[in-house]
């Protein structure tokens, strides 16, 4: 059995090592983690419990040995119904669409246009009502490139539940196929459908 020896190490090193081993271990297989630090042991135990990972513990001479079995952790748990007890305002999502036809905002100085679009996309995250979709076409698709200055923000926006649609024809035209890994590639029918059925289309 694999042994992960974290003796002499302090938090968070033992957790890092355990998590790495968990990733590398096949489901159903086990490994051991050694620690000689009370705090590290307590934190490890808590970390494993919270992640619903099976483990057993033995202690001798101030060394804790945790035998950890890799299971199917990470499977989504069911939600408790008692959560939202009160009528509380949630940050919600609307059905309006933001259409980005350029990688700059407005016409004028190029550098200013770059800066403005970055700030605009950043600000979307803080809107009280998030857009339903963001559509990227023509030079707008360049915002979705892996090295785009707003790629991090777009990923976050996508995680918040906003659908990102990128015009496939445009990506092909600018030869960006290898450089775009976010959102959904879309066709003109879907884009037209989304824009005409939206409550409102915002073009910055």
């Amino acid at each position: 059995m694999r042994i992960v020896d974290t003796r002499g190490q302090q938090c968070p090193a033992p957790i890092l090592a355990t998590k790495k081993a968990l990733k590398e271990t096949k489901t159903g297989e086990s490994f051991e983690v050694l620690t000689d630090n009370q705090t590290s042991f307590t934190n490890l135990r808590r970390f494993l419990k919270d992640n619903k990972t099976q483990f057993s513990v033995e202690e001798s001479d101030g060394v804790w040995t945790l035998t950890i079995k890799k299971g199917n952790e990470g499977i989504a748990m069911t939600k408790t119904a008692d959560y939202c007890v009160a009528d509380i305002p949630h940050f919600s999502q609307g059905d309006f669409v933001i259409a980005l036809s350029s990688n700059k905002m407005g016409s004028g100085d190029e550098e200013l246009g770059d800066m403005l679009i970055i700030n605009f996309i950043k600000a979307i995250k803080d809107l009280d009502i998030l857009p339903g979709k963001i559509i990227f076409y023509n030079r707008g698709v360049m915002l979705g490139k892996d090295d785009s200055p707003v790629i991090g923000h777009l990923k976050e926006i996508e995680k918040m539940g906003v659908k990102l649609l990128l015009c496939a024809t445009c990506i092909k035209f600018y030869s960006l196929e290898e450089m775009i890994h976010i959102g959904t590639l879309s066709n003109m029918y879907e884009i037209a459908q989304s824009m005409t059925s939206a409550s409102n289309v915002v073009k910055p």
């Binding site: 968070p12 069911t78 939600k79």
Partner: peptide, 25 residues
Amino acid sequence: DQGCIPGAAFRNLEYVENEAHVEDD
């Protein structure tokens, strides 16, 4: 996500958790 969770975070967790409801998922 790599497991770089400082010990102080566990201390704070212990302090807060009885008074907190954490959404299950």
